[in-house]
Each structure stands twice: as structure tokens, then as C-alpha cells.
């Protein structure tokens, strides 16, 4: 097995799918000659050329729409649209929400929209308010979209390959700070299915649910808690819509306690929805209300100390775990 960075794993996924299907192409700002703002598309332009690795003007709504129209045409075209970051994809939300997510339903199933919108999401480091937003809850709100959020190189590659092959619009949210994270990736072909979560750490006392960057925060908290004899299970749903509810509920029935960690805002978040489902579908199994740790409910400040204060941390997660255990 090779050890790859997440950016390399994503690159391999794109490369393999482009080699497998000539209908797959990638477009976005700086994806071709510059090799990607975060070097995710390194080498692809050299290999596939102008036709299939396409630099766009800075025009997110425009090229998102061109991708959607190309996908809808039903002649075997599968665009991958790279958003330099999801903060900029906000300009394309009309195209994604009003067009990609609606075409199939409004036409009573005449259209398929096989397209992936991918790029980094969530706070990085000291980028201030316009560049630090975790927007998965906004996307997961919309029926018609699939939302995927990988946390390891293995998952990133297998999930993206599934996303590219899927016939629906997939929102694929990576993380700038995680592109360099390394992990084992099999040499042979594999897929991670849409809608399948993963147990990142088995445990018996408390379930922590987290995705992308927050998985590492959860695992760190779990290691610390283990020293105090608290055995934590960490669940990564990987796909936020559709949600692997079975995996989550099964874990809750075992541990009877739950903390959700997300670096998006707390108000009407994916975590809110997960907590609601746990409360309504596993109420009798709960020994404490579900706790939720989020980024602070504010535009992200620039100053390092303030940003640190605003973000979820292992310390905050540990405190929440102790709270659901009624321990000090």
C-alpha cells in the first residue's frame, strides 16, 4: 500500500476516472496550467491537455452553470467543477440550488445531472471571515444534492471516485489544512460508497460524531479521555446527505451518549439534524441529551487567539464528553 497525502489521493481519483471515462473532465480556476491553487490537479493538464483540464475565468456562477448544462445534456459528459474554495462557490449557489438540484425533479426524471462540485471547505488558519466558512450545512439542506466530506486519504479517493460515477450533483468538500495529511491507500481499485459512514475508533462509553477536520479533533480528545478510562467511539458519517443513520443509531444504542463536533456554525447545522434524529429515533437509549460543539456563532476573526477561541478543540470536546457522562 502506498502512503499518500489527501491531495494526492484526490488527484489519483480524478486521474483514474478521467482515464476510465473520456466523458470526465475537470474545470475551474487555476486547475490546468497552475496545477491547482492547492496543487490537487498537479500534472493533469500535462497528461490530458486543454480539452479535459480547463482553466476558467473567475466566474463561479458561469462555469458552474456550464458544467450543469453539460451534465444535463445526457450525452455522456461528467464534469468535475473545482471551486477554489467553497467560500467562492457561494456565487454559484443559484446554479447549484436552483438548477442542478431541481432539473431532475421538475422534469419528472427526464434529466440526470452527473456533476461533482469539489474544493476546500471550512476554516483554515487566520484567513478572517470571508475565507473561513464551513458551508456543508447549507448544501446538505437541499434535496437533490449529495454532500460528501472525506477525512482520510483512503476515504477521499474512494469517495471521489464514487462521486464522479454517480448520476447526481455531488458536493464534495475537502479541507485546505488536510491536503497534506498522509495515510495508506491501496494500489488496487476501490470505491467508498455514497451514504456509508465509518467507525474511526471503536469504543463503548460515548459516541463522538465528526467529519473532515473534526475527526482528528475527536480522535485527539478520545486519546486523552482514554487515559482517564473513558472509552470513546468516533463515527465519521463521510456522506452528510444521505446520512448513514443506521451506523449512528447503532453506535448510540451501544454507548447511550453522544457528542457531535463540527466546525460549521451551530445554528441549523447538520449536527442539529443528527441530534434531532438521535433524540427522536433513539430516545430510549440515551442517558444524556446529545451535546454539540461548533465553531462560535460569529464571522471568523483574524487574530490568532480569537480564531483559536472560536474553533472546536480537543479540550472543548473533552468537556462535552464529560458533560454527557455527568463527570467532572
Amino acid at each position: 500500500m502506498a502512503v499518500l497525502q489527501i491531495r494526492e489521493a484526490i488527484n489519483q481519483a480524478i486521474d483514474e476516472e478521467m482515464a476510465r471515462d473520456t466523458g470526465v473532465f475537470i474545470m475551474g480556476e487555476e486547475v490546468a496550467q497552475y496545477n491547482g491553487a492547492y496543487k490537487v490537479t498537479q500534472g493533469l493538464w500535462k497528461k490530458y491537455g486543454d480539452k479535459r483540464v480547463i482553466d476558467t475565468p473567475i466566474t463561479e456562477a458561469g462555469f458552474a452553470g456550464i458544467g450543469i448544462g453539460a451534465a444535463m445534456t445526457g450525452i455522456g459528459v461528467r464534469p468535475i467543477v473545482e471551486m477554489m474554495t467553497w467560500n467562492f462557490a457561494i456565487l454559484a449557489f443559484d446554479q447549484i440550488i436552483n438548477h442542478a438540484a431541481k432539473a431532475r425533479y421538475m422534469s419528472a426524471g427526464q434529466f440526470k445531472v452527473p456533476i461533482v462540485f469539489r474544493g476546500p471547505n471550512g476554516p483554515a488558519h487566520m484567513l478572517s471571515a470571508q475565507h473561513s466558512q464551513a458551508l456543508e450545512s447549507m448544501m446538505a439542506h437541499v434535496p437533490g444534492l449529495i454532500v460528501m466530506t472525506p477525512s482520510t486519504p483512503y476515504d477521499a479517493k474512494g469517495m471521489l471516485k464514487s462521486a464522479i460515477r454517480d448520476d447526481n450533483p455531488v458536493i464534495f468538500m475537502e479541507s485546505e489544512l488536510m491536503y497534506g495529511i498522509k495515510g495508506e491507500v491501496p494500489d488496487e481499485e476501490y470505491l467508498v460508497p455514497i451514504g456509508k459512514g465509518d467507525i474511526k475508533r471503536e469504543g463503548t462509553d460515548v459516541t463522538i460524531i465528526a467529519w473532515t477536520k473534526m475527526v482528528a479533533v475527536a480522535l485527539k480528545a478520545a486519546d486523552e479521555l482514554q487515559k482517564e478510562g473513558i472509552n470513546v467511539e468516533v463515527i465519521d458519517p463521510r456522506t452528510l446527505r444521505p446520512l448513514d443513520e443506521d451506523l449512528i443509531l447503532e453506535s448510540i444504542r451501544k454507548t447511550n451518549r453522544c457528542v457531535i463536533v463540527e466546525d460549521s456554525w451551530p445554528y441549523a447545522s447538520v449536527g442539529t439534524e443528527i441530534a434531532h434524529r438521535i433524540h427522536t429515533k433513539a430516545f430510549d437509549y440515551l442517558d444524556a441529551p446529545v451535546e454539540k460543539i461548533n465553531s462560535a456563532d460569529i464571522p471568523m476573526p483574524y487574530a490568532e487567539n480569537l480564531e483559536h477561541e472560536a474553533l472546536p478543540s480537543p479540550e472543548k470536546v473533552i468537556a462535552a464528553v464529560k458533560k454527557v457522562l455527568y463527570r467532572k
Binding site: 458561469g62 452553470g65 456550464i66 448544462g69 451534465a71
Partner: peptide, 10 residues
């Protein structure tokens, strides 16, 4: 843009 997308695809 969707129309431009169909033109792109063909």
C-alpha cells in the same frame, strides 16, 4: 449558462 453547457458538451 446551462445552454452554454449543452453547447460545451456537444
Amino acid at each position: 449558462p446551462l445552454a452554454a453547457g449543452s453547447a460545451f458538451a456537444t
